[in-house]
Design a binder for these strands. Sequence first.
DNA 1: ATAGGGTTAG
Length: 557
Amino acid sequence: MTVRRRSQLNHLKYLTSTAQSCFDASFKNTRLTEASQFYSSLVQQCLHTRSLLDVGIVQTHMIKFGYIHLHIGNKLIDASLKCGSISYARKLFDELPNRHIVMWNSMISSYISHKKSKEGIGLYERMVLDGVYPDEYTFSCVFKAFSNLGLINEGRRAHGLSVVLGLEVSNVFVGSALVDMYAKFGRMKDARLVSNRVVDKDVVLFTALIVGYSQQGDNGEALEVFGSMINQGIKANAYTFASILITCGNLEDLTNGKLVHGLVIKSGYEPAVASQTSLLTMYARCGLIDDSLRIFKRFPNPNHVTWTSLIVGLVRNGREELALKKFRKMICKSIVPNSFTLSSALQACSNLAMIDEGRQIHAMVTKFGLDRDVYAGAALVNLYGKCGSTEMARSVFDALIDIDVVSMNSMIYSYAQNGFGHEALELFNSMKELGLEPNEVTILSVLLACNNSGLVHEGCQIFATITNNQTIELTRDHYACMVDLLGRSGRLEEAEALVKQVRNPDVVLWRTLLSACKLHGEVEMAERAVNKVLELAPGDEGSHILLTNVYASTGFG
DNA sequence: ATAGGGTTAG
């Protein structure tokens, strides 16, 4: 706090009590510039101290002496926003009779950057209704609010207005905001159309496009955009590198990954935290987890995202023990895990069937208030299912605030693993009412449940429905499950017919059929199956033994 | 006077 500021505010108080007459209307008219400078410098002081109280003092004084000037009003609003009080700024905003476009923009962008997209859009709509035309500053921030709230139609309407006002592609900020919005809506075609029209594309616009393609699973296109950006002589920055490294990781494209790593080093962005986390992830996804570990060691202060990336990478690469060790170390360093971290640590426990460790992490999930989180929840359901505690799995499942397909799948699979076929079917049948669309994993889980509980009829029915609808792509795993189900119940002909339906039947399918043959003493089919197994896996000892068993049990051989 | 993009998960 400066002495000068104190003296100015004291001076203000002095003026308030003794020199009111100086600030009457005539003063205002004759010495406007002086008053303006006076207030302006006071507001400037408020900005330095970030004290809303001072803003209030200045404002009260201004209103009391009838000094209303747009420029100063803006500064007051700006000062309130910078002091962290949107509501106070809004109060000032609503009180002032004439609002300049800058005020509207400041208010709207503050709302949106403080995760109050609804209020931001509300103000944007009022602005349009009031006949104030949004400008490039307005558009550069409202589109984000539409994507935050998933309001696609409203976003398109605003896009339309920006076209009418000629701001869509003439300003790169507006253009990239539009590209980002359409990308977040998954509408890459629209994003691309806007991008193509922007005259002066910059690195931010390209990055938004790259991230869009990457997150929509079109990593190849993301890589192309990156290439064309470089060709146009636009330099990548830390954000771009972070995104394109993730793209390489998604593609498990080590060649390009290493190439980009080289570019990162060359351009001097390596120290940027962002690039390094993505570097770590890229190497982990490409299977070079030791490189990830080496990169991790170079972080002076790894944050929760860095730790989580490492843990996730370790679990992906089958290094669950080390993942849990790192997780404990992270906790020791008082870094707060989030649902990403906890679900990965829980996955490590599931893979190792470490129920005690898992229970401890469950306690942390509770401690950090993530009991109702779908990700942590699904991981817990998996853990308890894997370790045979179906009841615990169900109680976690029932506490979830939002049930999605994945958590539903986890619960059905938990039932399946532990032989609770009817419970699994019941959940499966409840999905329609909940508005959840089953996917491949759901079907596999429910078929496994039928298989493990001998619910042949129900399993066949579900399989037939899926085959007829053709909405879900059936994999070899689905077929293997059905072959087992039919085979075990003695419907060997149907089982063999099913194997033959598969485009490239693998060893697992034939071996499954062979086991069924053994169970029912079916010699001829067993011989056919063994031949197929040996075709695909020459020297398979196991199938010979199985065949011998079949011969023995039927008196052949 | 005001403005934009990234990284961790079933």
